[in-house]
Design a protein around this nucleic acid. Structure first.
Length: 444
RNA sequence: UCCCGGGUAGCUCAGUCGGUAGAGCAGGUGGCUGUUAACCACCCUGUCGGGGGUUCGAGUCCCUCCCCGGGAGCCA
């Protein structure tokens, strides 16, 4: 039986089989204690070994931190403090030994930077194990959220010829002989949005959730060359409804973590970020503030704060500006809408003022931009005009223009970086620690 | 790519004025105890990131390259 179930069902008096990895061992003359973790939960199970049991001399001596073991025994109430239950071993077998002098993981805590250097072993640490379980459960919750609301998941291509202008540098795909994609240039996707639009304008409500690639030479705690992005896209939907969905979605995931990952979450509150649960609750309990870009610039200019880059209409909001807005002005998530058209991608819907577009960014305290989206330009002549203005060849995007030519409809969507979401939920500070094998410049 | 801060034992770090390196933890051995990141004693561990320079002498000063972390930009 796995340890999470044993701890939940408390099968006192029952014979159990436990398979897992030894975290610590403490010896006494008359009895040995080993703590086993099997990855099913954060908690370890204490196994008590009497030196008289079969195989003790040949096996138990070699058991120490890192070993894989199989234990048979009976669940008992623990007479000592520290745990309610323990397992009295009747037999123990060493499944895989582990040389303690060579094993990099110790019983004590390690720095996250060190754990990054042993990415194949770090899932055996408490923190990375907890991150991994939360990542998995929230991934499931993403699918559940959309399926409960009638969305259809679309598997958009990883290899694509779209560069989704404005979404960053692309990795080129090449065959082993150095050629390109069978004679045509191709790259790894930077966003599934354009393809998702095609399916939204057929199935109504769709979403993508998959890996995304950016070739930018970014060295920050918030960027990866390979990351996972969630992108819903809805037909017959305007920007307001888009924002409503984003807010509902983000709150849903946080609530899901509270309801389903409480033990792991408690670890983060205790060791990673003391203010975590309070901050998560604050997001759940408050409506997201909604302001326009123009209002944001005015707020920043009136704030009396001196920024390294003063806020100015027409310029993008700097990280320091985003921080000021959601950490000091509103102390809550902030949604900024109506950005200048010139600093946003071609596909966003032009507002009636002619200068701004129906874009929105969701800013979270401590994280910055966690989601970005827009209502898309559904008017074919407007879309084509913008493409020409920007020197894009409409012929290359004929399929995308066709979506407007044949049965066009207002539609909108947004993208959420899954790792940034995990930073917020776990209180971790670096996206490299919330993805199993992080891909960053110089690291593969 | 730019700006900071780092690189010393397996890990986390200290190292004064330039005088050939130290602690805690881990590991080993022994002891003790229904133990809780157990405890006590002893022992082991170093191309001081690489290269060059200054100097009688460099972990320490200078130059250079590499790597790591934080921030910025870009973005999710």
């Amino acid at each position: 039986m796995r340890i999470n179930r044993i701890l939940r069902t408390k099968p006192f008096g029952h014979e159990l089989e436990i398979k897992g990895w030894v975290r610590t061992r403490r010896d006494s003359k008359t009895v040995s204690f080993i703590e086993i973790n099997d990855g099913s939960c954060l908690e370890n199970l204490q196994v008590v070994i009497d030196p008289g049991i079969p195989g003790f001399d040949s096996v138990a001596r070699e058991i120490n931190t890192g070993c894989a073991v199989t234990v048979h025994g009976v669940a008992r109430k623990s007479p000592a403090r520290g745990q309610e239950m323990e397992v009295e071993a009747s037999s123990i077998a060493l499944t895989g030994g582990c040389d303690p002098a060579a094993y990099p993981l110790q019983k004590k805590r390690h720095s996250l930077e060190f754990l990054r250097t042993i990415s194949h072993l770090r899932p055996r640490s408490n923190v990375i194990g907890a991150v991994t379980r939360i990542r998995s459960r929230l991934s499931f919750a993403v699918h559940r959220f959309f399926h409960e609301r009638g969305f259809c998941q679309v598997h958009t291509p990883v290899i694509t010829a779209n560069d989704c202008e404005g979404a960053g540098e692309i990795f080129r795909v090449a065959a082993a002989d150095g050629g390109d994609f069978f004679g045509r240039p191709a790259g790894l996707t930077v966003s599934g949005q354009l393809e998702a639009e095609a399916y939204a304008l057929a199935l109504g409500r769709v979403y993508t959730f998959g890996p995304t690639f950016r070739a930018e030479n970014s060295h920050t705690s918030r960027h990866l060359a390979e990351f996972w992005m969630i992108e819903p896209e809805m037909a017959f939907c305007d920007l307001e409804e888009d924002i409503d969905l984003a807010e509902e979605f983000l709150k849903y995931l946080i609530l899901y973590a509270f309801d389903n990952c409480s033990a792991d979450l408690a670890l983060f509150s205790r060791f990673v970020d003391k203010g975590l649960e309070k901050r998560l609750r604050r997001v759940l309990e408050h409506d997201f503030a909604r302001i326009t870009y123009t209002e944001a610039v005015e707020l920043l200019q009136k704030s009396g704060r001196s920024f390294e880059f003063p806020a100015e209409w027409g310029m993008g909001l700097q990280s320091e500006h985003e921080r000021h807005l959601c950490e000091e002005v509103f102390n809550a998530p902030v949604v900024v809408t109506g950005y200048p058209a010139d600093i946003k991608p071609f596909y966003m819907r032009r507002n009636d003022d002619g200068k701004t577009v129906a874009a929105m960014d969701v800013l979270f305290p401590g994280i910055g931009e966690i989601a970005g989206g827009s209502q898309r330009e559904e008017r074919p002549e407007r879309l084509e005009a913008v493409m020409r203005e920007r020197g894009m060849d409409p012929a290359a995007y004929q399929w995308y223009l066709d979506l407007r030519r044949f049965g066009s409809a207002p539609h909108a969507g947004f993208g959420v970086g899954f790792e940034r979401l995990l930073l917020f939920v776990t209180g971790m500070k670096n996206v490299r620690d919330v993805i199993p094998f992080p891909r960053t410049p110089g690291h593969i």
